[in-house]
Amino acid sequence: MGMMAHTASPDLDVDHERSLDAQPPSSWQTVVWNDPVNLMSYVSHVFRTYFGFDAATAHRLMMAVHHDGHAVVARGPREVMEAHTQAMHDYGLWATVRKDPS
């Protein structure tokens, strides 16, 4: 029995598969929302403690939460943003994950 030559199908072309793998993973955001419970100083403390932000960055983000109603505090893969969101819940803050619109 002879060997049959393999003919590549355009639908299964290896280059096509590589181009799919080369696309960057979609980006997600952790958003912290304003609430009527937590003090501004506590929100800044959480941002510094959990995310490691310096005082100025933590204060700027806290002020965005306070004045704008929310702030994006992190961007990255969905699983990481979900972990950040759960951590914010553990600290008593309101937070959600959303797809990065950019």
Rank of each mutant, 00 (worst) to 15 (best):
G2C: 08
M3W: 05
M4V: 13
A5L: 04
A5F: 07
H6E: 11
P10W: 03
P10C: 02
L12K: 03
D13C: 06
D13Q: 00
V14T: 08
V14I: 14
V14W: 02
H16F: 05
R18T: 15
R18E: 11
R18F: 15
S19N: 09
S19L: 13
S19K: 12
D21F: 10
D21C: 09
D21H: 14
D21I: 14
Q23I: 06
P24C: 03
S26R: 14
S27Q: 13
W28V: 04
Q29K: 06
T30V: 06
V32Y: 01
W33E: 06
D35P: 14
V37R: 11
L39E: 14
M40F: 13
M40S: 08
S41I: 03
Y42P: 02
V43A: 04
V43E: 07
S44C: 14
H45Y: 14
V46P: 11
V46Q: 14
F47A: 00
F51D: 01
G52D: 04
F53A: 08
A55F: 09
A55C: 02
A55S: 08
T57L: 13
T57C: 04
H59E: 11
L61R: 09
L61F: 03
L61Y: 01
M62N: 03
V65C: 11
V65I: 10
H66I: 05
H66N: 11
H66W: 09
G69F: 07
G76Q: 01
P77H: 11
R78V: 09
V80A: 05
V80Y: 05
V80H: 03
M81R: 14
M81D: 10
A83E: 14
A83T: 12
A83V: 15
H84W: 00
A87G: 08
H89N: 03
Y91V: 03
Y91I: 00
L93V: 02
W94A: 08
W94R: 11
V97A: 02
R98H: 01
R98S: 06
K99M: 14
P101W: 02
S102F: 05
S102Y: 04
S102H: 15
